[in-house]
Amino acid sequence: MTLLAGPVGRRLALRVATGGALLAVLSLLVFVGVDLLPGDPVTARLGPNATPERVAELRAARGLDEPVLTRYAQWLGGLLRGDPGTSFSGKPVSEMLADRVGHSALLAGLCVLLLVPVSLAAGLYAARRPGKPADRTVSTGALLLVSVPEFVIASGLVLLFAVGLGLLPAVSLIPAGDHPIRHPDMLVMPVLSLLLVASAYSIRVIRACAVSVLAGPRVEFLRLTGVRERTILRTAVVPAVLPVAVQVWLVTGVGLVGGAVLVERVFAYPGVGDLLVTAVLGGDLPVVQAIVMILGAAMLLALVLADLAVVLLTPRLRTGGAV
């Protein structure tokens, strides 16, 4: 606990403060910035033939006739109390999101759980054989996968496993009120398609980091001192790779929720994806704003955690040897 009082505590406090400030800026952008965009969600939805009365009526119904800063203050106050507002459909946003956010987070969480061992193993495996066929296979595979959208991979998986081989269900038909965790067969393909894309980037980062460590003077010195390769990997390579890898895992984990929105649609999985698309098409800003703020906060939290992990995993930073 003395750790938290020292340089680490100070750094953590600073990061949390920065994160909070960024979240405040984000809320401003998400609410006021969106309001300042040219165009108007109301007229856009009603079409050019709408009468001015009809437009004014709808604006009033959505509370859009008040000044933006007043609305922002109300919205922000609600968020701080844990109330993300009311949908244009009249339902409270929190009610609409309740289960679905959890379902989406389940996909992302499972994926991160698998991502850690998969990317570490594949990255280190490739790095130990730089330029060899094994490395080239892993690296090229990762480079190809990293750029392909998740929903494209998911569709490919549907073609392969559901249509071609008939092994897995093409859609995740989960009965209402039931939890997806009780239907593992329906989780396989959504998680796998997210994992393929997410691990591609992590593998590339881990491999590049491990290659540079393995080619560096530290490992050369250990080899010249007669230390075994396994010991070198354990004591010198993995500790050097971890601070970088943890950052990538955390940030990828939150980013996965974005990808999950798309993958959910491929499998008709009951996450936030459907809800979001409906809201976007209907111009239902409160719902989208709430989801964006939740994920933005999660991302900023992940960044704080990533920073903390880097400090704890790097002796020089942990002991306050340098700022």
């Binding site: 400030a21 960024l22 952008l29 965009l37 111009g283 800003l285 994920l295 991302m299």
Partner: peptide, 28 residues
Amino acid sequence: MRPLDALAAVPPVLLVLLILTALPGRVG
């Protein structure tokens, strides 16, 4: 830079969806 940092915290897909809610169509 700070506002951009804040913007970077949102996964791009969601940012696109947010803006398309307020500003539909190709322009959005």
